[in-house]
């Protein structure tokens, strides 16, 4: 079967590539959407939380082992570094909220937004100053030779991205839907004052939200780093794309962020092969999608009707 004159095997290949890209967007988009859900503002420093988490994972990884040697020790070191990156990012997320956003909670909406952009610029420049602007290679902890099946292939890293992404998203969804704290999170996002009347410590819930979103960003950061290296501005474009994914899915909606991310990943991949958009113009796809969504369905795909607060 030839769809758009593309052989089936190539289609599968693009599907794999699109899904892995999408899974990464989804992981980052979740941080934007969760924070928006609770504080109704876009944390523009999210990409830098991702970047710093990745750096911390990178440093620990190379301190613990020499990845080029391979072996099970490297994999353990990688897992430890990944966890470390998640923790550092979570702490960073909580700290940024406490210092730069919490004092502005009662200020006009624009104030925390500008504060976030400021934090983003500060962190990016601080990273350039401390770690240098030269990009650093993040070696795979395993042999990344593609595995061939038929005419298509998948790399072990792609498998890891898909598996890790799936595990993270399913556990987040279960946490938010079923657990006591997850429900408290949803209650807080609907109405902070009433949530406090239920005995929920709203500040703790906000911190928890930042911690989870930031930890997911660190995971995405390390997955990206292995494909594209570590550098101080690595969070910029990834963050922007993930933000678009969150808007496409319906900002504030967790399932929306997951769907939006996957959709954007697939559109970018297939946009190049089907419509024939030159590789260099690939990034225009995401922004075009953003414009179209904002024109056609500004509340996002997964939000049924926009409820205005009365």
């Amino acid at each position: 079967m030839d769809l758009f004159n593309i052989p089936a095997n190539e289609l599968i290949q693009h599907l794999i590539n699109g899904l892995t890209l999408g899974a990464i967007y989804s992981l980052i988009a979740l941080g934007y959407t969760m924070v928006y859900g609770i504080l109704k503002f876009i944390n523009f420093a999210h990409g830098e939380i991702l970047m710093l988490g990745t750096y911390s994972g990178y440093f620990l990884y190379y301190m613990l082992c020499d990845p080029t040697k391979g072996g099970s020790y490297v994999i353990i070191a990688f897992a430890v570094s990944l966890l470390f990156a998640m923790i550092i990012s979570a702490i960073l997320g909580i700290t940024i909220e406490r210092i730069a956003y919490k004092p502005l909670r009662k200020a006009p909406r624009l104030a925390p937004l500008l504060s976030a952009i400021g934090v983003s610029i500060i962190l990016m420049n601080l990273a350039s100053l401390m770690f240098g602007t030269k990009s650093k290679k993040f070696d795979y902890p395993f042999d990344n030779t593609p595995i061939h099946f038929g005419d298509a292939s998948i790399t072990p890293n792609q498998i890891m991205i898909l598996v890790v992404g799936l595990i993270m998203m399913v556990s987040l969804k279960l946490f938010v839907d079923r657990s006591r704290l997850g429900k408290a999170m949803r209650a807080t996002s609907e109405n902070q004052a009433v949530a406090a009347l239920m005995g929920i410590n709203v500040n703790s819930i906000i911190s928890l939200t930042f911690a989870i979103g930031s930890a997911l960003a660190a995971v995405a950061g390390i997955l990206i780093a292995m494909e594209f290296k570590v550098y101080p501005t690595m969070g910029q474009l990834a963050g922007l794309k993930a933000f678009i994914a969150a808007v496409v899915g319906g900002i504030g909606n967790i399932t929306g962020a997951m769907v939006g991310g996957i959709l954007l990943g697939l559109l970018e991949t297939f946009g190049v092969v089907i419509i024939g958009i030159p590789q260099g113009l690939k990034d225009t796809i995401a922004f075009s999608v953003l414009i179209i969504i904002l024109l056609v369905k500004p509340s996002g795909l997964l939000i049924k009707n926009r409820r205005e607060k009365v």
Partner: peptide, 11 residues
Amino acid sequence: APEGRGIFAEM
């Protein structure tokens, strides 16, 4: 039980 009921509509 707050003013305007204050239930969590989406729960």
